[in-house]
Design a protein around this nucleic acid. Structure first.
Length: 227
DNA sequence: AACCAGGACGTGA
DNA sequence: TCACGTCATGGT
């Protein structure tokens, strides 16, 4: 990690926070204040977030949230009930989220894991063994459902970081490590920073990095040219 | 009407 | 490791 990388990452976080404010991005359906970081408050909310991270894979949160709400209305947002429900029925319920055949299987896999977990905090490498849980979903689960200081790297992050010359690599673990090493503070603080930074990056990217040519109208670009 | 969305997985270089 | 095809609905 170069010193400039961390300077740029901290600058990016500062600027994005100033522009968009706190995102409050723990995908819980219900009421909460964006600045309230005391979520999830129980295992049901924790599971709801976990389910959300899978359903939103390569899908808009709007569509994913719709299916989370459907599951909630049907009182299925409980690990044991996800296991009990047939995959066919699950697929039907989560249809708007896309990839329903894959995702319904993934939901069952994570539900099995959560039951066996017995209310402990999962290890990252254990999550990665589950079919349907890749690096981004694993980190999302750890960061938002278990409040662990694991930074989430998504395609937007790679895109913005390379476009703003923050990093040269597009390797997941490399970028994750660079970001995590840029912020040294206590665990709770880092967790909040990582939760907000990832959400802010997504928000910014949706405006300036979703269609080609990427970032051409990004107002932050000049700030990163001569640093 | 092509293109993309808060990816993961399998396969073949 | 890395690039590419596949999975699928809904919005622009």
């Amino acid at each position: 990690m170069t010193k400039k990388s961390s300077e740029k990452i901290i600058l990016l976080y500062t600027l994005l926070k100033k522009i968009y404010g706190p995102q409050g991005w723990w995908p819980i359906t219900g009421k909460y204040h964006p600045k309230d970081y005391s979520y999830p408050k129980n295992n049901l909310q924790r599971f709801e977030i976990i389910i959300g991270t899978i359903l939103t894979q390569n899908t808009t949160w709007k569509n994913a949230e719709k299916t989370v709400l459907s599951l909630k209305t049907k009182k299925l947002l409980i690990p044991k009930l996800i296991i009990k429900t047939s995959q066919k029925k699950l697929s039907e319920i989560i249809k708007p989220a896309g990839y329903f055949n894959q995702k319904s299987a993934y939901l069952k896999n994570i539900a099995e894991f959560i039951v066996k977990l017995n209310a402990k905090i999962p290890q990252r490498n254990e999550l990665l063994k589950i079919r349907g849980i890749g690096p981004e979903t694993a980190d999302s689960i750890l960061l938002y459902a278990f409040n662990q200081p694991e930074f989430v790297v998504d395609s937007y992050t790679k895109r913005i970081f390379t476009e703003l010359n923050i990093v040269k690599t597009s390797n997941y673990n490399s970028i994750k490590k660079i970001v995590e090493e840029s912020f040294q503070s206590k665990k709770e603080t880092k967790t909040v920073i990582f939760q907000e930074l990832h959400a802010l990056i997504v928000e910014h990217a949706k405006q300036y990095y979703s269609k080609k040519p990427f970032g051409i109208k990004d107002p932050l670009k000049p700030d990163f040219n001569n640093i």
